[in-house]
Amino acid sequence: MKSFACLHFLTSSCRSLNVILIPRSTMKEIKLTQQDDLDLSVVIPVYNDTLKFENLLSSYLHAFAALPLKFELVIVDNNSPRFEEIYAIVKKFRENLQITVVMQPPLQHSFSLCSARNRGVLNARGRFIFFTDSDCLIDEDFATTVADICQREAAVSLESPRIYTGERVFVLIPDEPLPDAKISDRIKELPRVPSASNYGKVKDRRFPWIQNLPQQEHPWNFVHGCFILLEKEHYLRVGGSDTSYDGFWGYEEIDLVYRMVHQLRAEVIYLEKAKVYHQELPSDLEKIPQNTQRNNKSMNPNYQRICQRVPGFDEFKKVQWQTLNIITS
């Protein structure tokens, strides 16, 4: 894979921190050269949010500490103006976590999740990929469940590929890093709160439908970018994430899963015991009444695109929003 630069920082614990600068390209133009010598790669796009990002790294360090899983974190920076702060946080964890930092080329917009995920996968060494967001925490139950899937499925041949997802729990965090000691226990004690990303609701809005997977109508609708576990091979076979969704929020992961279900006959599986914890600051809660952009579907090009590609999706979503008492336009 062509790159502008790659800096290696070796540590006494034999962990490494790589910084890779990637030229602008597409999935078809880049050949995959990484060897799958790890069980799992966690791909995390990041843009500026240092406090939540530091909490995330701490949660991974402690959740996987007692497990034999070979894993790495692939951090993809979307042109953060505060990249020096992001990098300083990464260096704090490099002795105990295997981390690669991929720096995106100059972007037209920082909201470039699809290109970030594609570049992360192309630099990943794990057989399995877990996509998540830089503001989401995990606990030991999540780590144990994911480690079991990676090790079990590596030993068998499945008839159909599987895409795993789980609940998003919205938690209120303080304006300072969470303490490292027993962070998994601390996460579970955090107050549950409404979130702008969940249309102002406390409970993950995908319930109860998500519990009926994979039989649920439009199963791709219930997979969110903060929690997608799949095999790298299957992601690449469908061409990865569609970068035409970059520049606006939402629906890129639904497009990905829709293609995997139809092209590969993949199944979407709900993991009851695995959760991610979406961090909310007090200042985030103040934004909920003003978050009208999310409800305006007529002005969201991503929503228009997914409705054109997935037959019946618009009608399905309107019924769901009505059930949830979510007003859209």
Rank of each mutant, 00 (worst) to 15 (best):
M1Q: 08
M1F: 09
F4T: 10
L7V: 15
T11D: 12
R15S: 12
R15F: 12
R15Q: 11
L17Q: 05
P23I: 07
K28E: 14
T33C: 11
D36Y: 08
D39W: 05
L40Y: 12
S41Q: 07
V42R: 07
V43P: 00
I44N: 00
N48L: 02
D49T: 04
L51R: 10
E54W: 03
E54N: 12
Y60T: 12
H62D: 14
A66H: 13
P68F: 00
P68S: 04
E72H: 15
D77L: 01
D77Q: 03
N79P: 00
F83V: 05
F83G: 06
I89F: 05
K91A: 10
E95V: 06
L97Y: 00
Q98L: 15
T100D: 01
T100E: 01
V101S: 00
M103E: 15
L107M: 09
S110N: 07
L113T: 08
S115M: 06
N118H: 08
G120I: 06
L122G: 00
A124F: 02
F128N: 10
F128G: 04
I129R: 11
D135F: 05
D135A: 10
C136T: 13
T145P: 11
D148A: 13
I149P: 05
Q151W: 04
Q151Y: 04
E159R: 12
S160H: 11
I163R: 12
E167Q: 10
V171F: 05
P179S: 15
P179I: 10
A181F: 08
S184E: 02
K188Q: 10
P191R: 03
S195C: 10
N198E: 13
Y199A: 02
G200I: 15
V202T: 12
R205C: 09
R206W: 07
F207Y: 15
I210E: 01
Q211L: 13
Q211C: 15
L213N: 02
P214F: 10
Q215G: 00
Q215P: 00
E217M: 05
W220P: 00
N221A: 15
N221C: 13
F222A: 08
H224Y: 14
R237A: 14
G240E: 04
E252D: 11
L256P: 07
V257C: 06
Y258F: 14
Y258A: 03
M260A: 03
M260P: 07
V268H: 02
E272S: 15
A274C: 08
K275P: 00
K275D: 04
H278K: 10
D284F: 04
L285F: 03
I288A: 07
I288H: 04
N291L: 14
Q293V: 09
R294F: 03
S298W: 11
N300M: 01
P301V: 11
P301Y: 09
Q304V: 09
I306D: 01
G312V: 11
Q320K: 13
Q322A: 08
N325A: 15
I326C: 12
I327W: 13
S329M: 14
